[in-house]
Write a protein that binds this DNA or RNA. Sequence first.
DNA 1: TACCAGAGGAG
DNA 2: AAATCCTCTGGTA
Length: 771
Amino acid sequence: MKTLLDADYIERDGKAVIRLFYKTENGREIEEIEDFRPYFYAIPEDGKIEELKKEIQEIENVISVEEERKIDVQKEIDVLRITVKLPRDVPKIREIVKELKYCKETREAHIPFAERYLINSGLVPMKNSEEIDLKIAAFDIEVYNPRGEPNSDVDPILMISYSDSMGMRRVWTHSIDGIDLKFLEILENEREIIKKFVDTIREREIDIIVTYNGDNFDFPYLKERGRRLNVPIEIGIDGSQVKLERRGMNLGARVRGRPHIDLFPISRQIFNLSKYTLEDVYLEITGREKLDIRVGEMAEIWDSGDREKIKEILKYSMSDADATLEIALELLPLHYALSRITGELIYQSSRAGSGQRVESLLMRRAYERGILFPNKPSDQIVGERQRMSYIGGYVLEPERGIHDNLILFDFRSLYPSIIISYNIDPGTIDCECCKDDSYKTPTGHHFCKKRKGFIPEILKELIERRMKIKNKLAVEKDLRRRKFLDVKQYALKILANSMYGYFGFPRARWYSRECAETTAALGREYIKRTINEVERNGFRAVYGDTDSVYIVLPNETKKEKIVERAKSLLEKINSRLPEAMELEFEGFYPRGIFITKKRYALIDEFSRLIVKGLETRRRDWANIAKETQNDVLMAILHDKNPEKAASIVKDVIRRIKNGEVSLEDLAINTQITRGIGDYVQAGPHIAAAKKAMKRGLEFKRGDIVTYVITKKGSSISDKAEVIDFVKEGDYDSEYYINNQVLPAVLRILEALGYSEDELKGLGKQTTLDLF
DNA sequence: TACCAGAGGAG
DNA sequence: AAATCCTCTGGTA
């Protein structure tokens, strides 16, 4: 038994050799494949295949040109498979072939060689990864930073913390003494701690390296320090150095044969948090607070020589590596599962977005079926596709205000089930063979009834595999086994739910605006039909969004009666739906308040508050506003006590006014979504970030700015300061009352039916009270 | 006051 | 580098 961790190729004796990096039960194994050659396809102009073949055969370094029959979207065609000597020959020869007179286009000429081999061989990475005990190591570095952000040209690494799955825990540091900590090891200098790290990874035969932001901080920094101190970071299985790869705007740190997995982008993808510091993510996963320090003070503390404070830094550093390892053990299984399903290497898969993941899966399945991959679109085509948008889901205007005894119906996997039911696929759309059929979808397109579409077929396979796993889960007792199955079904769900978005993704190979558009149009049709149907049966639809509808039964207050009526109606609706589609009874809610589209709150049967879209759910509102809104919602929906709500608000306003609110509760988190210079109109978070940058902090696209509105300045942007530079109590109470707490709370009370005048009175009065 | 860029949520 | 729909804020004229 073995598991495939990594793959690449090298050139040897003028030949490309694929290397497969396995972990076996006894250790490591590198398998070399010497008889696989790079190739790509050329599609000839009609009837010109022989002519094209002759032309191509003349090209230098072309080994062979063979005719092959492939499926291209709607039909079978004859293409030429051009085999070349080395992977680096492909781009050159592809350019030449593309320009030949009888060549319509080239295909599959951009697939990296090692990935090409994995697709063709059907090898699956991370298979058996649960059975083989993978050795996982986490590390983290702390750096001297006397001018704010550290500079790897001059600022040394102070310590490296290390924690692995076999239980070894260390902080390696230098230039200190007299501190007693179990995990501490003091070495000669910076060079020695880097060396120790490299040696440890090698000696302990680590299989997977995990970091938190190692792609863009720890590894680039380590690599540069290593270069300057003449300690190359040679931690690859083959002794190679860690390699920094460009990945769009960011870097990826790649270690040959010992996949490095960065948990920071993964956490961003999986969790919905206000910010994504290691501490936040650790808290989200474990429910425990992690030791934290102000890293801005690192240099100051280090220079002070204060042993107690340095001891705190050492403990903090250790906890970083420990937390990273713990997070990894929690998150990696999902990524192993995704890697197995899509066939991508774990290094790629763990850094892939939804589009990339779906595409990798599709390419594997396409190869198996003899389907020619569509090319990746050029930037120009991407631009054209972006401008061609289409209509999406339907949102029913809510009946504003409070409703009792709500029932929620929703379609189980609406879009996937539509794609399957209607066979929606670029290869089945508007086929010749079914063009005389009477049924047309709402977009005017029809889909083949004879041939099963490629994507519906894959989607069905994903859903069926998931169902099988769910059935197993229902009877499985063993906890370990249950966890494994649950992760797997979740991975399948993620992929199935990404398929519709993939149709509309401008960079997709199998992009089809028509398919995306038709799927959404049918979705609208089904939810609208459902709304009509419930209303014809005595219910009222008070709100609905895309695949869901909240309904109430007028003149009936008994829960049992309402639920019974709803369930029988559900049965009726379902009996008329296509087989793959199902409307489900999602829940009963004693009370709810609907504010606007996509903004509402409910109380469930266990008195739990569910909030959608309102400020409470948004990272770009201060805690004080969010918590107050939450309390007001509880007072109204659960306690049914508007007076209580009013007194909650008054008390919070008093506390704000008295300067009693902590910075933590005043912080607003907003992401920088573009280059700082690219803003036409910059908000307070950009103003705050710019000021902080002048004081030595670094901010770039993608970062989340945590800031507070202080007293100093005229506009809100003027007053915005990054939280690190704000002292407790220095905040603009008027802003927090009038722009945070009151809007969040008044929206609720307004929907409750308080007249605008009354509320203005409340607002003013409360404000007046305090002035 | 009106408009728009920007952000982040829902499904 | 998955889609669209939608609300709301703060800057600007």
